[in-house]
Amino acid sequence: MNLLDKIKKAREKGKASIGVNSLNTVIAIIEAYSLDSNFLRFLDASPYLIVERKNTGSRFTRKPDLRIPIFPLTSRRNYLLAKQVIEAIGNPYIRFSRAPEEVYLSKFLYRENPSISHDELRNYHFEILLRREIDKKKSKNRFQ
């Protein structure tokens, strides 16, 4: 295949979008919060514990700001930890999380409602969304 054919083929294929994926997000969170392997143990806890605990405080938790790099170069330790986290709780919502707590809640949020819009996931803390989903479920059960 000559160069011209290669260029034509590449153009037909189209550009692959460089976006933020789950791995980039988890790596950024690990680096920002200096997480270690203890985080994997934390992922096993029940979500309701956190929701109950949070109920005592402010009702609205603000979504934290975190810049996710496009190219997630990191140390081998962080990289392996990020891969383990994704293996443990892999779901499409992880890439919208911005804090360790959100990574952890993403699994349960996805289980409760797998069709939440990207805009909501981007702008609201997962705790609020999860609480809403739980409330929705409760009211549904009450009416039934």
Binding site: L23, F71, P72, L73, T74, S75, R76, N78, Y79
Partner: peptide, 10 residues
């Protein structure tokens, strides 16, 4: 220097 990792490097 310690090698930094990403999926491509791996």
């Amino acid at each position: 220097f310690p090698l930094l990792f990403d999926p491509d490097v791996e």
